Computed example of a mutant assay.
Amino acid sequence: MKQYLALMLTFGISATAMAGDFPKLEGPLMGQTPPGKMAEVFAPGVISTDKWELEGVFAPGMEEFYFVTREGFERPHIIGFRMTDGVWQKFTEFRRTGEPFITSDGQTMHLAKGYRAREGDSWSETKSLGPLFDREDWGIMRLTASDAGTYVFDDYKTGDMIRISRMVGGERQPAEAMPVQFNSGKMTAHPFIAADESYLIWDSEREDGFGQSDLYISFRMPDGEWGPAINMGPTVNSDDDDFWASVTPDGKYLMFDRVVARDGDTVNVDIYWMDAGIINELRQKAMSGAE
Rank of each mutant, 00 (worst) to 15 (best):
K186T: 02
N268C: 13
D241P: 00
D223K: 04
F256Y: 10
D270L: 06
D223P: 07
G251H: 07
P228I: 11
H190V: 09
K252G: 06
T266Y: 13
I201R: 07
P234C: 14
D250S: 04
I193F: 09
D257H: 02
A189D: 09
W226S: 11
I217Y: 07
G277E: 10
T248L: 02
E197Y: 13
E207R: 11
S218F: 10
W273M: 05
M255L: 11
W244E: 04
I217P: 10
D196L: 05
I278A: 08
D263L: 13
G233L: 00
F219M: 09
G224Q: 07
V236P: 02
R258T: 08
N237I: 10
A245Y: 06
M232Y: 12
M274H: 04
M187L: 12
E207W: 05
S213I: 08
V260C: 08
S246P: 04
N280S: 13
F192V: 00
P249G: 01
E205T: 03
A195E: 03
K186W: 13
A195S: 10
D270C: 13
G264Q: 06
A261R: 15
W273S: 06
D265T: 14
R220K: 14
D275R: 08
A245T: 03
D263Y: 08
G227Q: 05
D257T: 11
M232A: 14
F243K: 00
D196E: 09
D214V: 09
S184F: 08
T235R: 12
Y272C: 07
A245V: 08
A194N: 04
R206V: 01
I201C: 07
P249M: 00
V260P: 02
D208N: 15
I201K: 07
G185M: 12
M232T: 13
V247M: 04
G233I: 00
A245D: 06
S184D: 14
M221S: 10
D239Y: 10
L200D: 00
D214K: 07
M187R: 06
D214L: 12
S246F: 04
D223C: 06
G211E: 15
V267W: 11
S218H: 05
D270P: 00
H190D: 15
I217N: 05
E207K: 13
E225T: 14
E205S: 12
M187E: 11
E205W: 10
V247S: 01
G251Y: 07
I193K: 05
D250L: 03
T266G: 01
L200K: 05
V269R: 06
A195T: 06
